[in-house]
Design a protein around this nucleic acid. Structure first.
Lengths: 337, 337
DNA sequence: GAGAATGCAACAATCGATTGCATTACACGG
DNA sequence: CCGTGTAATGCAATCGATTGTTGCATTCTC
């Protein structure tokens, strides 16, 4: 392929068409200012050389980036991998929603060592806005940024007194309905698997406690407060099952990933689900109806969540000061409970 | 926050420091051309105003984009969602590898309606190179692009006679060792679940056939050739189990996602695994050792694959004409076989 | 103390587009 | 044939950086 005659910019194309670069620019933008005949000639020429104007140059001039930064902050959870199904599901929905709006998705997995990680992305000028998938333990950094930078939204808990815009489900309520469901199923002794250091999980636990105290069973709850990832959950739960004197008959897992590990650990301990133990998860990830037995769970509608995140973000990019959104969690009953 | 005094570009900072923009640029790049004292003063000033030079402008001048396009072409598989665990796992590894090299990841899920989808990304000037996760049914488009654009690599089958650079595992061999393993386990009747339209899967099936014909059992194989996604696999398999006269005792699934659905469908049909039927998957995704029973599978080392993809890509960006890489598949024996 | 060498910083062109304003060309009426 | 109006195009500044070249002070040398 002769790289000689290649059309690299509008100036090349302008020369070819015998017009000025400005005219080419307008013609390719289909501006009415340019005579229809000229316009079509230039567009035809562009097609022949399959030329496309340089997006970066355009964006520099236009002062927009055409991309949204999607960050996955992994603070206290250094072990957690980006391939965590939760993140990935959310990411897929975001990719779809952003593409629809003509924006690219700049993905970044950040392990926030210094408090500068967010500044770096925002001030780089390569994104028009930022979506955080999760707040991790970086609330302070996020709050600070939110005070000066409008187009920033986060998936996660809607924390009282915090100003940053968030979309998340009502975790307290989710924990509550999960627990109430198990109570109705006849469970009397409960275990909660999940680390309350993360705000979302702490709220779920709170909801769980509320449901129990409503029926005077507050004392029937034990907690496995480890930080549980896809890798660490199974050994932790297995050990817990070994150590615990009496296995509870209702298990509330803080996430589907944890619940899945629990199902497996229980199977290995010869405990039947839902025969001896009822298990409920949280999230309703795509795999949750593929487990054996299929997993009852509290659904967070991630598709809707992603749509909200993107919608709020674009309204903020336009200058609007939007509020946060709290989604209703929904009980999904399958075989495990 | 007063937006008045905000330092928006090096010119602002230059004014503040009483030097020229050029000097600021060099100072921030820590160039030896600038006196150490001046340099430090400017850097200090930049820190105070937490100013960071605009990456887009820089990239325009430097003629690099600082980002790699990662595309997921979903051709014949319109039903397939980006949240397919396979893509996501790969994506996670790529994100890590690219971040290490100081590049961003521009994610795009493309449904190739017109043959222009790849051009659009390549010629936009916003990426330094492109990684395709999968070839889908877009071999022609990919080949055409590969002939003129060096920094392009794809995950997938290494197809004979094709020039584009690929990284993938030896699917034929993978299919073979999976099947041999089941034969050793005493299976005599086999089923293969997966659609041979995709080149990878067709190769796996071929390997499977080869292993069977080596022991004169070619005729003992039935095939469920549906295109199977996380959503469609379970009903399809369930129906197949209903319809089939005698359930085989060895099932080779073309992917772990399919295998997982098979495990569930079998459980629902009261078939024990590995008691009555041995099941083996393909991929070794993170969840594959979380299923009940845990899934035997043919591991594709996606971490290594991602590392190779990124390595090859950067060598190509540097101008080298690299060859393709074929990874060795590895048998991972767990409970399901 | 004059001339050469050296170190620093300023100047200005450049990357590839967009766009307000100036200018040209053409048509038409008087 | 000229003035005027309008449609179409050209010109040049601009977005925010980078970098080769140039110019000005010092400092060094003999």
């Amino acid at each position: 392929m002769s790289d000689q005659g290649r059309v690299r910019n509008i100036t090349d194309l302008a020369r070819l068409a015998g017009v000025s670069p400005g005219t080419v620019s307008r013609a390719l933008a289909d501006s009415q200012l340019i005579a229809k005949k000229t316009r079509e000639k230039i567009q035809q020429l562009a097609r022949e050389h399959d030329f496309r104007p340089n997006v970066m140059a355009r964006n520099l001039r236009i002062k927009r980036a055409g991309a949204i930064g999607v960050l996955i902050p992994l603070g206290h959870e250094t072990g957690q991998h980006i391939s965590d199904p939760f993140f990935m599901t959310m990411l897929g929905h975001l990719a779809d929603a952003l593409t629809e709006r003509g924006h690219d998705l700049l993905l970044s997995r950040v392990i926030p060592k210094d408090p500068d990680w967010l500044n770096r992305v925002v001030d780089s000028g390569r994104v028009d806005g930022v979506i955080l998938i999760g707040q991790s333990d970086q609330i302070d950094v996020i709050e600070k940024m939110a005070s000066r930078y409008l187009p920033l939204v986060a998936w996660g808990a809607n924390l009282p007194g915090k100003i940053h815009c968030s979309v998340g489900s009502d975790n307290r309520k989710g924990g509550e309905i999960a627990t109430r469901h198990l109570i109705e199923r006849g469970c009397r002794n409960f275990a909660f698997f999940g680390d309350p250091v993360a705000p979302e999980i702490s709220e779920r636990l709170e909801g769980c406690r509320a449901a129990l105290s409503a029926v005077n069973m507050s004392s029937n709850l034990s907690i496995l407060p480890a930080h549980l990832t896809a890798e660490t959950a199974h050994p932790a739960i297995s050990k817990w099952l070994d150590d615990t004197r009496s296995i509870p008959n209702g298990i509330i897992a803080a996430s589907d990933v944890i619940a899945m590990s629990a199902l497996r650990a229980l199977a290995e301990h010869g405990v039947t689900v839902p025969g001896q133990v009822h298990v409920i998860g949280y999230d309703d990830l795509p795999f949750s109806n593929q487990t054996v037995p299929t997993l009852s769970t509290v659904k967070q509608d991630l598709a809707a969540g992603a749509a909200h995140l993107v919608d709020l973000l674009f309204r903020r990019i336009a200058g609007e000061e939007t509020g946060s959104v709290v989604l209703e969690p929904e009980l999904v009953i399958r075989q495990s409970s």
